Structure formats: C-alpha cells, structure tokens
Amino acid sequence: EKVLKRMREIKNELLQAQNPSELYLSSKTELQGLIGQLDEVSLEKNPCIREARRRAVIEVQTLITYIDL
C-alpha cells in the first residue's frame, strides 16, 4: 500500500509539473527503488499478496515506461 501510494504521488507530480523533464531522472530512480521494495515482499503461499505485488509492479513499471517515452 505504501509503495502504491508513493507511486501515485510521483505520477501526480509528473502530470502537474510545469517542466516535467526535470523530475524524470529523480522520479525514475525513486520508482526503481520502489520496485526493489516490492521485490523484498514475502510472497509465501498467500495468493492475495502475490497478486497485489504483481499489480503494484506492473503499475510502477508502466510509470517508468511513461517516463522513458
């Protein structure tokens, strides 16, 4: 939940920025750090946690791809 919240904050900052190119590098670095945090999530045998992590990774990767474009 914390990762998704921060990812959404970054997305809003990028969309509202007057000059978003200044934010791209720092935002991309922070998003890659969020992916690292998601990699540390213990998936164990809980399919709900596994699915939530998968969705979060996809959302963060989508935003990274947007920045790259």
Rank of each mutant, 00 (worst) to 15 (best):
Q37V: 09
Q37F: 02
A52M: 09
A56E: 03
L69W: 12
S27G: 05
E13I: 11
E9A: 05
E44V: 07
S21I: 00
C48S: 13
L38P: 03
L15W: 04
E30M: 02
V3L: 15
V41W: 07
R8N: 11
Y24V: 06
D39C: 06
I49G: 10
T62D: 12
G33E: 11
G33A: 13
D39R: 10
L69N: 15
M7L: 12
A56C: 08
R53C: 15
L63N: 02
D39Y: 08
T29W: 08
N46F: 04
T62P: 03
T65Q: 12
Q16M: 14
I49Q: 11
I67M: 07
K28N: 02
E30R: 02
V60D: 02
E9G: 00
C48L: 13
L38E: 05
A56I: 05
V3C: 05
K45D: 10
I35W: 02
Y66A: 08
Y24I: 05
L69G: 15
T62L: 05
K11H: 14
E44M: 13
R8D: 08
V57L: 11
V41H: 11
I67T: 01
T62I: 04
S26C: 06
G36M: 10
E40N: 09
P47S: 13
N19Q: 09
L43I: 15
I58K: 14
L23E: 03
S26Q: 14
V41F: 08
I10N: 01
V41A: 11
E30N: 05
R53L: 09
N19W: 06
E9T: 06
L23V: 12
E22R: 08
L63G: 01
V60H: 01
R50T: 13
R53Q: 15
E40W: 03
L34G: 00
E22A: 11
R55I: 06
A56W: 01
R53F: 04
L25N: 06
G36I: 09
A56K: 01
V3Q: 07
E59S: 06
D39K: 11
V3H: 01
L34N: 00
R8M: 10
R53N: 11
K11C: 08
Q32Y: 07
R53K: 11
L25M: 10
G36F: 01
L38T: 06
N19A: 08
R8P: 00
M7S: 12
S21A: 14
A52K: 13
E59T: 02
Q37I: 14
I64M: 09
N12T: 14
Q37A: 07
Y24G: 07
L63A: 03
E13P: 01
E51I: 03
V57A: 10
V3I: 15
E22N: 06
T62A: 15
P47C: 06
S21W: 10
D68K: 05
S21K: 06
L31S: 00
Q32P: 03
S27C: 10
I58E: 15
E40Q: 13
I10E: 01
Y24T: 01
E30H: 01
K28G: 02
D39L: 08
L63I: 03
Y66M: 09
I64N: 03
L15F: 15
V57I: 13
N46T: 14
Q61V: 02
Y24D: 03
P20W: 01
E13H: 06
R53D: 12
Y24K: 12
L31M: 01
N46D: 13
E9M: 05
L34P: 02
I58T: 13
E44Q: 05
L43N: 12
V57F: 10
T65L: 04
V3N: 00
V3T: 03
K28F: 02
D39I: 04
G36W: 07
G33Q: 14
K45T: 12
L38V: 06
P20S: 11
S42R: 12
R50D: 14
Q61C: 05
R8A: 12
I64F: 01
E13G: 06
S42T: 07
L69E: 15
S42A: 11
S26Y: 07
R50G: 11
R8Q: 09
N46I: 04
L31E: 03
E30P: 01
I64C: 03
A56Q: 03
Y66D: 13
D39W: 03
E59N: 02
K28L: 07
E51S: 04
C48E: 15
R53T: 14
L31N: 01
V57K: 13
N46G: 07
G36V: 11
S21R: 09
E59L: 01
L43R: 13
Q18H: 14
Y24Q: 04
R55K: 12
K45E: 15
V41I: 15
L34V: 00
E22L: 10
Y24S: 00
L38W: 03
T65H: 03
L31P: 01
R55E: 08
L43G: 12
L15P: 00
C48N: 10
G36C: 12
L38A: 05
Y24N: 02
L25C: 10
I58R: 15
R54Q: 10
V3G: 01
I10C: 01
I58N: 14
P20L: 05
R50C: 09
Y66L: 08
Q37L: 11
L63W: 04
P47R: 08
L63P: 02
Q16F: 05
K45N: 15
V41E: 11
E30G: 00
E44Y: 10
Q61E: 12
R53E: 14
Q32K: 03
K28W: 05
D39T: 12
V57T: 02
S42Y: 14
V60C: 14
L69M: 06
N12V: 12
I35Q: 01
I64K: 01
I35K: 04
I10M: 01
L38Q: 02
L34K: 00
E22H: 07
I67G: 00
R8V: 09
V60N: 08
R50A: 12
S21T: 10
Q16D: 06
L34I: 05
T29Y: 05
E40S: 13
L43A: 15
Y24F: 09
V60I: 09
L15K: 10
I49C: 13
E59M: 02
S27N: 06
V3A: 05
I10A: 00
L43H: 15
N46S: 12
C48Y: 12
P47Q: 11
L25P: 11
S42E: 14
R55S: 10
R50F: 04
I49F: 14
T65D: 07
E22T: 09
K11A: 08
